[in-house]
């Protein structure tokens, strides 16, 4: 695939997510320091960085699972404030996939998928179920619809989680280390689904250390350290000649094994 064309196309497309001078503290601890990030519609951003650098915190600020203290976060044209209505409106447009899947264990796979469309989007039950089955086919596990999450493998659970987020027909998807809790042989089945999603033009921010995925899918790779965005570049550039010393050190560590 050609990153150059992708990048050129993106410059023309509207801004989906914008973080402007975002700062966040946990008590005295400064987790996010002057974070600036613009993600355009259809753009795929991969975020990497050492443990504790604030990657999760940053993307969780985008759908207000965490609150930032200063700066602006604008999602799909809406500025995040404390207004509950506004937060709910943004959450309807932003899907999220977690490291630990976080499926609802007391509901079947199908019910996991249809719950939010039926109750939040007020979609008729039949329509929601059709949509859910369609998405389960897309993540290649339609036959598991009536099982409970506890009866599925990790890879299957994560694919259900992706389908559940897609069921709300989000404009933006956030992934927080979606493959880190998986056994190695299941990583590919989840990444394949994510690659497919990316090729369909979904706007994505993905925290991951799967550098192969970053290379083939990302328009931009962001490197974070100690709450700052240290470096951001197209993957070819990012991997070939990282500008900062910290990035180089990090890459040498994760690429060495």
């Amino acid at each position: 695939m050609s990153t150059a064309t992708a990048a050129r196309n993106l410059d023309a497309s509207p801004v989906a997510i914008e973080l402007r001078n975002v700062n966040k503290w946990y008590g005295q601890f400064h987790v996010l320091t002057n974070v600036n990030l613009t993600v355009r519609k259809g753009e795929k951003v991969v975020v990497c960085g050492p443990s504790g650098s604030g990657k999760s915190t940053m993307i969780r600020c985008v759908n207000r699972l965490e609150e930032h203290q200063t700066g602006d976060i604008i999602v799909d044209g809406m500025t995040l404030t404390n207004d509950v209505k506004g937060v709910d409106a943004i959450r309807r447009e932003v899907g999220m996939v977690f490291q630990q899947f976080n499926l609802f264990p007391h509901l079947t796979v199908l019910e996991n998928l249809t719950l939010a469309p039926i109750w939040v989007r007020k979609m008729p039950k039949k329509e929601a179920e059709d949509l859910a089955m369609m998405l389960l086919k897309r993540v290649r596990i339609p036959e598991q619809a009536l099982k409970y999450p506890g009866q599925l493998s990790g890879g299957q659970q994560q694919r259900v989680a992706i389908a559940r987020a897609l069921c709300m027909r989000p404009k933006i998807m956030l992934f927080d280390e979606p493959t880190s809790a998986l056994d190695p042989e299941m990583v590919k089945e989840v990444l394949d689904v994510m690659i497919e999603l990316a090729n369909e033009g979904m706007t994505m921010i993905c925290v991951t250390h799967e550098m192969g995925f970053a290379r083939s899918v990302a328009d931009n790779v962001v490197f974070m350290d100690r709450g700052e965005i240290v470096e951001m570049a197209a993957p070819t550039e990012f991997f070939a000649n990282p500008k900062s010393e910290r990035t180089r050190l990090f890459l040498s560590q994760i690429l060495s094994h």
Binding site: N63, M96, F98, Q100, N102, F104, A116, R164, A165, M168
Partner: peptide, 15 residues
């Protein structure tokens, strides 16, 4: 994680 997953789907406190 259960609270967060529900929040992320846009479920209200009551739901």
């Amino acid at each position: 994680g259960q609270y967060e997953a529900a929040d992320a789907l846009g479920l209200s406190y009551r739901l």
